[in-house]
Design a protein around this nucleic acid. Sequence first.
DNA 1: CTGTTAGCGCGTTCAT
DNA 2: ATGAACGCGCTAACAG
Lengths: 349, 349
Amino acid sequence: MKRDRAPTLADIAEQGGVSVSTVSYVLSGKRSISDRTRKRVLKAIEDLEYRPNARARALASGSTRALALLLPSPQPRERTEQHSFVAGAALATSKADYSLVLSTSPARAARVGQMVEDNRADGVILMEIELRDRRITRLIADGFAFSVIGHPDNSDGVSYVDLDFAHSIRQAVEHLVEHGHRRILLFNVMPDVPSRKFQYGPAQRSRAAFAALANEFDLEATEVEVPRDPDRVYEIAHSAIAKLRPTAGVALVTASPAVMSAAIHQGLRIPDDFSLVGFEVPQLAGIPIPALTNIDFPAYEMGQMGVEMLIDRLAGAEDPPTQRLLRPPLTIRESTARVPTRRRAVKSR
Amino acid sequence: MKRDRAPTLADIAEQGGVSVSTVSYVLSGKRSISDRTRKRVLKAIEDLEYRPNARARALASGSTRALALLLPSPQPRERTEQHSFVAGAALATSKADYSLVLSTSPARAARVGQMVEDNRADGVILMEIELRDRRITRLIADGFAFSVIGHPDNSDGVSYVDLDFAHSIRQAVEHLVEHGHRRILLFNVMPDVPSRKFQYGPAQRSRAAFAALANEFDLEATEVEVPRDPDRVYEIAHSAIAKLRPTAGVALVTASPAVMSAAIHQGLRIPDDFSLVGFEVPQLAGIPIPALTNIDFPAYEMGQMGVEMLIDRLAGAEDPPTQRLLRPPLTIRESTARVPTRRRAVKSR
DNA sequence: CTGTTAGCGCGTTCAT
DNA sequence: ATGAACGCGCTAACAG
């Protein structure tokens, strides 16, 4: 049976023979109600299939119980980790009985707070963080609640979850070094906006770590920058491998399938001629041919943490910010192996 | 400079020396305003950096300008197309100046309208549609605005966008038949909930089309059901290929990488020993080794269409529903080839 | 323990 | 062309 108008608090109050505030209070539990009236109210709510109106509630209470997730302008070719962030965030928000509003990133940094200003959300979650991210500066200046996936250079007071890229790169390179590799390529991610090339945290931190390791282990290490488009990655990796003839490579997020293809397509056998360590979301690592030695990118979990941190922020008053630098393990699979000694002979031709 | 309280219509009215309704009307344009007052008001809005409060607006107007996208409970291992739906939907909503609220699918069909009932959204978008989807029945019964990605058996009056799976399967099979293949496997998607196995539209329609084609061309056609988990797909495909020794296969959404791996790992060369047609989002097709003959799943576009259709529904009164059955082209790449004649000799051993 | 009422910020009808 | 005032549905003082 369908009413033409959704029941309101007033309807419940009437039906139950009580006042609206009483109904409101049995709903919120913010003051004690006698068992008898509570039951009457609950019955009325049941009978009329009453559902609180979220907008009215938001207007009156000042809280929307919604979080905004700012997507980097959604392209058809999105990155897998970003999708996992979204999925994880969606799960965590509904678990906490919040809503998740997806929003495309505003062009101007000044607009990051828009969702909060417009009263569509209580706080925002940022991703694709730059080393000095102006959006974060704004959000702090404007006093908005937020959390970030990734972290800027100066992360004082900001709640974030990120990967410890320096640690992961070290783990990957040490793995290769232990297997005798010395000529190693780093396929580093490059943001689509060239001017921000040196601003993107993961790229920058990976680069620095890689350079330090090259020095420490005295490697012939070369960094190769690759864009997001897999086809371009393929081309670039193809020529880099042909030219530099590395025995191994480390590919950052999203690049490994294309890099592996590039190697195979020029006749290299994996891992005999070329070892590769990837950095992908788990579901991508198991399937390739051969299976990828991989650092599992815990994107789904990071998405969840992002919202949990934000909700904590919204609840707890002046708690210290949560800051988590994750160190996912390296899983060794078929794509890496000891560099064969016979290679030395071949190499000299 | 930051105020402790966001400016409201009243603030603008005061600053501009006019009434609140006047301000409201210059914003909505719903009645004519003299140029002088309009300018004064606009200046005040500019000066105070006024932003309309979306919740108050929603409460007063009855429209939230938000759409809810109901996600199948977001798992870590989400399917690529679903992510693309989301990305496309996010783009289209923000283009139309709407918000997109992500919501996990309610357990009970009766709850599909929740987002609308709670006044968080004006309409909902459904995905993962079953042949007789109770959610759709509910939504119609309750008179809610909605659109769906996929389509049920009885789609009278529902706006949807879907793929013409029967057509695509035909296209794929005919391609293989033309190349001399006769022993063909269909790797069909299987929903996670076994009881709904025969309810899932794409699976059901693909199955029927495949069976009809087997009959029409007198093929040794076998359907192999695979779950979503790539590892399981690999196992199942591996043993199916070993046992049935097909010369070709057609893999539905998401399955082709695992199927290809399974074939390669048992020593088959692609396409010489085994041809494969995939059905994947474009970004997945180009990179595999070898490149996949593929029907590009236009998931991103479908996500966009889903919201566009819903917005049309919300705007236009009693227009006929939009119903689109897309037929993406088959792109022939390296993974399929003519079945070699020498194979006949080999086959008999 | 319960009722009354004043907002929350904006849209809109009714006056003027 | 403009203003005054009411209502959207709910929360939270304030008053018993």
